[in-house]
Design a protein around this nucleic acid. Structure first.
Lengths: 220, 220
DNA sequence: TACAGGGTAGTGGTCTGACCACTCAAGAAT
DNA sequence: ATTCTTGAGTGGTCAGACCACTACCCTGTA
């Protein structure tokens, strides 16, 4: 099955094979992987080929290599690829638009899901966010949306979202402005009330607001 | 200037240096880049180091290499990125459920988008599908949904959907049953009428139908 | 002149073997 | 018991050699 098609790019097959090996080893996050020399021997390829595959995975943030120690399954946190991609790809308008749209798709879906499940929308965490918003405590945009995604319980969607978030031009890391706080507050209230449609509308308004403010900044 | 910080990862610096070179050359999409040997000479590093950097960029879909021809600045449309990440994600296969859900998220988003844009829902392709459905011509489930995704125009979403489809337990390749034809027909009609909500409801009903029938099969 | 063919230089793909720099831990010296 | 030395193992890098493939020039032919 696997090696039926010796594609002209061996290192791509290797990436796939490595995945299989890691799985067989039952490797979890942070675990040490076989050394490059061992892998080369086991897969019957040169060490340089193994290295090309590993470097790719490293740039993607899937593994972590430490000189003198070894190679480890990474915590999916710090992808180096963010800055790389942003300088290469992000100029392309179609890509930017699609990334933003797709991110939005996942966010909307999560909001609706939470709003439609009584046990989820009743969670105390929403109240906590609401009180923060009303008491003018700083709230990071990212944190609220992330919480919604997490509660929605679709881990795949969450992972995709994490990825898209990093490519997005929306300034996710900043704290909300005064106007935003009100929109976000409405969003939460409607979501908690089970009014998914209105919550999504609030979300759309919120996004618009963020984009407007951003546009204003650029003009200065 | 460049090598002020000899970070222990030379190949990461190279990635950065390569970007500079490409920019200096004024390279646009599809342009040929200097050969590996030339780059190695110019940056005063070994060819293998250059290659590790290039392979990373290739996996990200930023460049394209063709044996015997050379290396080219890639068309950004086809990143390998999504594939690689997904295969890694799939290895934590705690939930095929998430795959189905996420696929559904993208399908719903596409249906709503088409329904909300007059120029998209007026496309003749929908009429074509409708007549096929009513005249009992075979229609593959996959084809209809794919068309919707394509028309929606979000390439990233489409790409993710293609991927998820492969891992999905829903039998996408089969032709629709009689009951399904009616649901799908309703979906199309509502979508064309700009009634996104009802279209999504039809879609949900359709999915339920498919799952029920599938359950029936398994019991046999 | 026009065309078909072969040859060749250049390219990416891979392997090998050799160093280097670094980490860690076992074992030696104190 | 503590500290120091040393060596094995690791990733990082390099140079050189092939291979397979492509493009293109340059023949020889029609």
């Amino acid at each position: 099955m696997e090696n039926s098609r010796p594609s002209s790019k061996r290192f791509l097959d290797i990436v796939s094979d490595l995945r299989t090996i890691f799985k067989e080893e039952g490797a979890g996050i942070g675990d040490k992987l076989p050394s490059e020399r061992v892998l080369a021997d086991r897969l019957q390829v040169g060490r340089s080929t193994i290295r090309e595959a590993l470097r790719s995975l490293e740039l993607l943030g899937l593994i972590e290599t430490r000189r003198g120690e070894g190679t480890f399954l990474a915590d999916y946190k710090k992808h180096q690829l963010v800055e790389i991609l942003s300088t290469f790809i992000m100029q392309h308008p179609q890509s930017i638009r699609d990334v933003d749209r797709t991110r939005k798709i996942h966010e909307v879906a999560a909001i609706e899901l939470v709003a439609n499940h009584a046990e989820l929308r009743a969670l105390p965490v929403w109240e906590s966010f609401l009180s923060k918003l009303e008491e003018a405590e700083p709230v990071i945009r990212e944190d609220l949306l992330q919480e919604i995604l997490v509660v929605a319980g679709n881990r795949l969607s969450l992972k995709i979202w994490f990825l898209l978030k990093q490519y997005s031009r929306v300034p996710f890391h900043e704290a909300m402005t005064e106007n935003e706080r009100e929109m976000a507050s409405n969003l939460l209230k409607n979501m908690r009330a089970g009014n998914g449609q209105q919550a999504v509308a609030d979300y759309a308004g919120w996004l618009e607001l963020v984009n407007e403010e951003r546009r204003g900044e650029l003009e200065c």
